[in-house]
């Protein structure tokens, strides 16, 4: 059990930030002061409060008079959703392939091994861009699906190692003898036993998926307007860096806060699990 006194202050702070972000991601809609799509051409490029603006638009407005608070809430929601689906999907895909690889051995194992090698060798950004270019539509579902294909190979490697070591364990033998199916043994015994390792990997993978999503959206290759994400916000504010820097700076600050908090948390979690 984690004794609370052993948790450093910084880690506590990061946990609070991450929980806050998750809450925002869930309740972005009700929390928004205005409709995300509401255009107010009379209120274009209003500066935020701390930049000499008014409380009508606490974080200012963009070039179409959209309320930045609402845009950012929606942006957090989309970015976190895409990253969560990408991370979780990658974990499921990789773990399944890894366990399959360990359990069947032989030809299937080799095939999966070669695919893992391929995925690990070729830079992720190029692979993802290659997928984006061949898929005809660039809608939300397609893009989220592509995000699953970034980073699954680490789970496959971990799960394969876990599966191989489990096969020699007495408890697995015992279950095989009483006639339990491989599926049952893997899902009921082997997987729960290795959850800590997989979760730590997910905590490392998650901020990377956020970075990948925001980068691609920033480049105009990810989430497409009129929907928004933190990356889309920064990409659209690029030309206004001179006259309306807040359009870029606030989402930038939020991305930094999010990814740094999750990374510190993940780093701490890994040290914690490895020291056990």
């Amino acid at each position: 059990m984690i004794s609370l006194r052993r948790v450093p202050t910084l880690v506590t702070l990061c946990t609070v930030i991450v929980l806050l972000v998750l809450l925002i991601a869930v309740f972005a809609g009700p929390l928004s002061p205005r409709d995300v799509a509401e255009v107010n051409l009379e209120a274009r490029f209003r500066p935020p409060v701390f930049w000499g603006g008014s409380w009508d638009y606490p974080l200012g407005t963009d070039g179409l008079g959209h309320d930045m608070v609402s845009l950012i809430l929606r942006g957090i929601q989309v970015s976190v959703t895409v990253a969560a689906i990408g991370t979780f999907g990658g974990a499921v895909l990789g773990t399944t392939l890894g366990l399959l690889s360990a359990w069947t051995e032989g030809f299937l194992d080799s095939v999966i091994g070669v695919l893992v090698d391929f995925q690990a060798t070729i830079p992720t950004l190029i692979l993802i861009l290659a997928f984006i270019v061949i898929l005809p539509s660039s809608d939300f579902v397609t893009f989220t699906g592509i995000m699953i294909l970034a980073g699954w190979e680490r789970y496959a490697r971990l799960a394969r190692a876990i599966g191989l070591s489990a096969r020699s364990q007495p408890y697995v033998h015992a279950q095989l003898v009483i006639g339990a199916s491989a599926f049952r043994i893997l899902t009921r015994s082997v997987l729960p036993n290795s959850m800590a390792v997989l979760l730590v990997n997910m905590s490392i993978h998650f901020p990377q998926t956020i970075l990948l999503e925001t980068t691609l959206s920033f480049l105009g290759l990810g989430v497409q307007p009129p929907d928004t994400s933190l990356g889309v916000l920064i990409g659209s504010g690029r030309d206004q860096l001179y006259n309306a820097p807040w359009v870029i700076l606030t989402p930038t600050f939020i991305i930094l806060l999010m990814t740094i908090s999750i990374s510190i948390l993940g780093d701490w979690a890994r040290d914690f699990v490895e020291s056990d």
Binding site: L211, T214, T215, L219, I234, R238, L241, I255, L256, I260
Partner: peptide, 9 residues
Amino acid sequence: AVPPFLLGI
């Protein structure tokens, strides 16, 4: 943890 595009901007 810092994405290069943010650092650049």
